[in-house]
């Protein structure tokens, strides 16, 4: 008991910059669940710290208008949306430049693992809703979407795990929260990364801020163990439904 307290104290003293007492490589507490939306073909819930994402998958289903159809393979359509009350400033409902961008990068982060060859002319729709956001929402959305796609019984090479890494002050840290993201008037660097956990292939890498090349490589290496942890949570959540 005392030793745990001491450890925590030591950790806090060593890394004073993390407000919630995490070490630099720790992710926030995660909870995940699948099958949360009964009417959907597949669905999932992914909560990391105070960021909560729901994803629902519909399809493969018929795609209209026809000119969007691809006779070679099925297409993936993602839709990322933040609910009006999800952040401290009201989020104006409807598509925005930001949500369109995130929808697109989510699609591109998920497509490398998906095999839609069996569904020509069809579409798989993924709806991602964020009920609560505290940084890392696109990563939470990707994690939830990957689980929902697996839950929908689609053919996938692997899952996709995503988490952010960044530079706060002079320290590299994994999984930035809201406070860290806005540290020193948004001077921190936020790098959302999505990876295929088994191969460490990167399917999403964005960077908001300034970081040196060497530090970027270091940051990507730092995020790999966190990815494994997230992938483990995702796998357990998928299995939990059938227990």
């Amino acid at each position: 008991m005392t030793s745990t307290v001491n450890n925590m104290m030591n950790r806090k003293v060593k890394n004073m910059k993390r407000t919630d007492g995490r070490s630099q490589t720790d992710v926030r507490p995660i909870t995940a669940k699948t099958g949360v939306i009964k009417k959907a073909d597949g669905s999932a819930y992914f909560k990391i710290g105070n960021t909560t994402a729901y994803a629902a998958v519909y399809g493969p289903r018929n795609l209209f208008p026809r000119f969007l159809q691809d006779p070679k393979k099925g297409i993936l359509r993602c839709n990322y949306n933040m609910l009006p009350f999800s952040a401290s400033d009201r989020v104006r409902p409807g598509p925005s430049r930001r949500s369109r961008e995130i929808s697109m990068i989510t699609e591109k982060a998920l497509l490398p693992v998906l095999d839609l060859d069996a569904y020509p002319n069809a579409v798989v729709d993924v709806f991602i809703e964020l009920t609560e956001t505290d940084a890392g929402s696109r990563c939470a959305g990707i994690c939830a979407a990957a689980m929902a796609l697996a839950d929908a019984g689609l053919i996938m090479k692997d899952l996709v795990a995503a988490v952010s890494v960044g530079k706060v002050g002079n320290d590299l840290v994994v999984d930035l929260d809201g406070v860290e993201e806005h540290y020193n008037e948004n001077e921190s660097t936020d790098i959302p990364v999505a990876m295929i956990p088994s191969t460490h292939e990167i399917t999403l890498l964005q960077c908001d801020g300034i970081i040196a090349k060497e530090e970027l490589f270091k940051a990507i290496d730092m995020v790999k163990p966190a990815m494994q942890k997230i992938a483990e949570v995702q796998r357990n959540a998928l299995k939990e439904k059938y227990r």
């Binding site: 073909d41 289903r61 095999d115 069996a118 697996a150 929908a152 019984g153 689609l154 053919i155 088994s198």
Partner: peptide, 25 residues
Amino acid sequence: IASRLGLLSQEGKVIKIIPLSGKYL
């Protein structure tokens, strides 16, 4: 490696997965 969610099953030398969800093909 598994490429979909399902139950693991082995028939002789062949490892296969019995799907638990998905659309009818």
